[in-house]
Design a protein around this nucleic acid. Structure first.
Length: 548
RNA sequence: GACUCAUUGGUCAAGUGGUUAAGACGCCACCCUCUCACGGUGGAAUCAGGGGUUCGACUCCCCUAUGGGUUACCA
């Protein structure tokens, strides 16, 4: 069989050679020793979830920690699944979380010398590489129709053998030149299949940077490399693109583990070195008591949009992700509470190889610490931006009450044991909403031992002695006095010792006041909040309650 | 079904043949305290099961179970 002729027959119009691409078009990158080149290669389906961010984070750290390159390539080889505008979504979402690409697809066009970065624009490159494989006898055209393949699978199922296109089942594996010509003359469509040399028994070993040595069965399937439309399948695109783009580390989900043998064999056949593989474990979700891989269909709440809508700070999300990405991160963070997150040395070896369950409690807890380190003014800006995008009705209020909001955000944040009240925008807004009359309402009831009438009596007493210029201790002393005068213990400990002597204690009294002013039974220090609200508002709210 | 990866408390996990099996989140109790947070102290809670190998196994091997993944001209 003259493979050279076959190649010419199939691709008369491909004149460039594989050497041209390797040496002239895409020469080796000039990078410092040890620099890693990574890529994010999403398909543009318009949905990006936490799992994608998780993986992208690994790529980004690997590249930027080593002085390498992090690029974006769009795997748009499946026309059916393309969604308009999804490239923008991907880029802006990742950027929001602090991941920036150095090269590749961009909103304003591509940057970099290794493009095009959309696979749909690389057809000629793939075809050239395919042509080469045909020339050396490692690829061939297959004219089977989908129906015929379906038949084949049924046949194989009946005989109880592995399904697929391989060995004696590969009908077009050894077509003669004349037969190929014949099919071509009939205008039949064809795919290019890989000619595998593997057997069903073979195995090989390969190193995975996360999982260590992996022992795999060898590939024996003549998989499709080029579809009838001349566009490659993932397997072939991965080999061609990652090699030609100079990718050193391929980070991808563990769902690719089982196709690794295919990739390995193609790399070998074409004579290229494999990149370092890094197969990450999936982020999982609890579903009816069982762990499950994140799904874009079933888990919209794990879409990145969800966290932006709730107003999670990107720093907090990064911080959380790093705790599940590298088990030693938390330890490092405790030792270096104020260091920038990028000072942490991320390592592949510390990555877990079993799927982690997403833990919202943990995220929230991390948020508290992260936000505490961000100045109130910046939180305000963040909150305002968030409201402008996701909570329009609150944006105006936040905008026109800038000073007050910043003060509200700052309450209790100073000192040795600062409060950690703030987690994410939605929650923060709720946390400070009482300040605005439009949002203010009484959500909690009085303590059990105090009825409405009693409450009014206490509030009247409070109003009578209230002096807005009192300092904090003067203010609270007056509350103690009101408590004593009305039969409540001025100190909770007294009440605890002799509960029968009192109606309650000073805490009950201040709770009544707190509810009148804040609308809730729990809040930061009332005196501080009053100072921010101003005398008029404080008095008005209490009066409203008394007269209702 | 076949092939494959995984399995330490509720969750994230340290651990690489000899440990009282770290730590974090969550939970509970107590302390601090006008509430809530914060902070502090303490507590409950884990090696999926069964066989080996070994003086000794969470650690190595095998089987089983459970969960994930692949089995496409999807990625």
């Amino acid at each position: 069989m003259d493979y050279k002729k076959l190649a010419e027959l199939l691709y008369p119009n491909i004149t460039k050679t594989i050497e041209y691409y390797e040496n002239e078009a895409y020469p080796k990158r000039k990078l410092p020793e040890g620099a890693k080149v990574t890529r994010l290669a999403p398909s543009p389906t318009g949905f990006i979830h936490l799992g994608n961010l998780y993986g992208a984070f690994v790529d980004e750290r690997l590249a930027h920690q080593s002085g390498g390159v992090f690029l974006l390539r769009i795997e748009d080889t499946d026309e059916k699944r393309k969604v308009e505008g999804s490239v923008e979504t991907i880029i802006t979402s990742l950027e929001f979380f602090g991941l920036k690409f150095d090269e590749g697809a961009g909103i304003e066009g591509e940057t970099g010398d290794y493009g095009p970065y959309f696979q749909s624009n690389r057809a000629e490159i793939y075809q050239c590489c395919a042509k080469y494989l045909v020339e050396i006898g490692r690829a061939y055209p297959c004219f089977c129709t989908e129906e015929e393949l379906e038949e084949l699978r049924k046949e194989q199922a009946k005989e109880n053998v592995n399904t697929g296109y391989y060995g004696k089942w590969a009908r077009d594996r050894n077509l003669s030149l004349e037969e190929v010509q014949q099919h071509l003359n009939n205008n039949e469509e064809f795919v290019i299949r890989f000619r595998s040399e593997g057997t069903e028994e073979g195995t090989f070993e390969i190193y995975d940077a996360i999982r260590g040595r992996l022992s795999n069965p060898v590939n024996y399937q003549d998989i499709v490399m080029l579809k009838t439309n001349g566009i490659p399948t993932y397997h072939f695109a991965h080999v061609v693109d990652d090699h030609l783009m100079g990718i050193t580390h391929v980070v991808r989900g563990e769902e690719w583990l089982s196709t690794l043998p295919i990739h390995y064999e193609i790399f070998k056949a074409i004579g290229w070195e494999t990149p370092v593989y890094c197969h990450t474990a999936h982020l999982m979700k609890m579903d009816d008591g069982a762990k499950r891989k994140l799904s874009k269909r079933k888990d919209p709440e794990l879409g990145l949009g969800y966290y932006r809508e709730l107003g999670y700070h990107p720093k907090a999300v990064r911080e959380y992700l790093l705790t599940i990405l590298n088990s030693n991160f938390e330890e490092w963070r405790m030792k270096n509470p104020d260091s920038p997150i990028d000072d942490f040395q991320f390592t592949l070896g510390k990555m877990s190889n079993s799927g982690a369950l997403f833990d919202l409690d943990k995220l929230n807890n991390i948020c508290k610490d992260v936000l505490l380190k961000i100045p109130a003014v910046e939180i305000y800006e963040f909150l305002l931006n968030w409201a402008n995008e996701y909570k329009k009705e609150a944006a105006g209020m936040l905008y026109s009450n800038k000073d007050e909001v910043i003060k509200l955000l700052s309450v209790g944040r100073e000192g040795k044991n600062p409060r950690k009240d703030l987690m994410y925008c939605e929650q923060i807004l709720d946390f400070i909403s009482y300040y605005f009359d439009e949002y203010f309402n009484i959500v909690d009831g009085y303590p059990e031992n105090i009825n409405d009438e009693e409450a009014k009596k206490l509030l009247q007493a409070y109003l009578k002695t209230y002096d807005h210029s009192d300092d904090q201790s003067q203010w609270f002393e007056k509350i103690r006095v009101i408590a004593s005068e009305n039969g409540y213990a001025a100190k909770p400990k007294d009440y605890k010792k002799n509960p029968d002597m009192y109606k309650g204690h000073v805490g009950d009294v201040s709770t009544v006041i707190r509810i009148a002013i804040i609308g809730r039974a729990s809040s930061p220090d009332v005196w501080e909040l009053q100072q921010i609200m101003g005398e008029e508002k404080v008095r008005r709210r209490i009066e409203n309650l008394i007269n209702n």
